[in-house]
């Protein structure tokens, strides 16, 4: 599902807004084409792009188009009231024909092959789930989606999903009429060979993480939304990792984890889940600032800046070099 060949992606791809559509109250979908008319680089379900919305204003948005069609990319953007940032810009200033600089697609939320899937989406967190469902459907896998939102009118793509896949598998839950998602009902009975993919706001994901402690380790995969876009920016450029013990420096490409990069140069790090869930790959940081993406370290651990889980976590935005005790 993920590409392994290190693609030296061009840092920026110039695109033109091909279509703008209001898909729900406060949500627009943008369809982008490359300015040079070529195809976008290949991507898999769960991928996102960086969208450059102006000086120092970069936001990450999940792709919700079909990976099989590389002539366009589609993102969904939620308008957040009072946001100084990206969503306001998208909603007020972009129109068909506008130019927009984006990055090549990258994936921090790849879909692993599994016999069964459970998809959980909260609000605009539905976006990365859409291509995942398509992939699961195409592979003939058993799947169910639970999609919660404030009210039905704010829930992007809800009607289209129900129309396409039916109410049996697409469970829409609008909070104002039906209340919150019943996570106990949904997650209280773990199933064998089922992977859980959840995307939504922090509060929902924390509750999902709590319930999934009763699931097999590694069954849950999450991606968090903060305000209007994906979690606070990690370094979207390649960065360097210096191995303090063994000597040497390795470049970690944008589509590679630190773990993969250091393993390629022969460094040994004990790993198990390789998904930020088990804590096995914990590594001491000698210097540099990490962007934590695991579900293991406590807040204090994360804030201490002394350790990181190298299978998922990266260098923070503005940190081009991490020195690790390896």
């Amino acid at each position: 599902m993920t590409t392994t060949a290190p693609v030296m992606a061009p840092a920026i791809i110039d695109t033109t807004v091909h279509a703008v559509e209001h898909v729900a109250e406060g949500v627009v979908s943008l369809v982008l084409r490359r300015a040079d008319g070529r195809d976008f680089p290949a991507w898999g379900p769960g991928a996102h792009i960086d969208v450059h919305l102006g000086e120092d204003l970069v936001r990450q948005y999940s792709l919700c188009s079909a990976p099989s069609d590389l002539s366009t990319l589609r993102i969904g953007v939620l308008r957040v009231p009072d946001s100084r940032g990206g969503s306001k810009h998208v909603h007020q200033e972009l129109a068909v024909g506008s130019s927009l600089a984006v990055s090549a697609p990258r994936n921090n939320f790849p879909l692993a092959d599994s016999r069964k899937y459970l998809f959980l989406a909260g609000g605009i967190g539905i976006t990365p789930i859409i291509p995942m469902i398509e992939a699961a459907e195409a592979a003939g896998r058993e799947w169910t989606l639970h999609y919660g939102g404030r009210s039905r009118s704010t829930m992007a793509f809800a009607d289209a999903l129900v129309a396409r896949y039916g109410e049996e598998r697409v469970r829409i839950l609008a909070e104002d009429t039906e209340g919150r998602m019943d996570l106990q009902g949904i997650l209280g009975m773990p199933r064998a060979h089922m992977q859980v993919y959840a995307c939504g706001p922090g509060g929902m994901l924390s509750a999902v993480e709590d319930f999934c402690m009763g699931w097999p380790p590694g069954a849950l995969h999450t991606e968090r939304f903060v305000a209007d876009a994906l979690g606070a920016g990690a370094n979207s450029e390649p960065f360097e990792v210096e191995l303090a013990r063994t000597g040497g420096t390795v470049t970690v490409d944008t589509n590679q984890t630190i773990l993969e990069a250091v393993e390629q140069v022969g460094a040994r790090v004990l790993s198990s889940c390789r998904a930020g869930l088990c804590g096995t790959c914990e590594t001491r940081i000698v210097s540099g600032e990490p962007e934590h993406r695991d579900a293991v370290l406590t807040r204090e651990d994360k804030e201490s800046g002394e350790i990181m889980l190298v299978c998922v976590s990266r260098a923070a935005a503005g940190c081009s070099r991490l020195v690790l005790d390896l």
Binding site: G188, M189, P190, D210, F211, M213, G214, W215, C278, G279, E282, V296, L297, T298, D301
Partner: peptide
């Protein structure tokens, strides 16, 4: 098993 496991992993985890 699920509730017992949740309780236990909440207490014993890498953190």
């Amino acid at each position: 098993h699920t509730v017992m496991r949740r309780a236990l992993t909440g207490v014993i985890n890498p953190g």
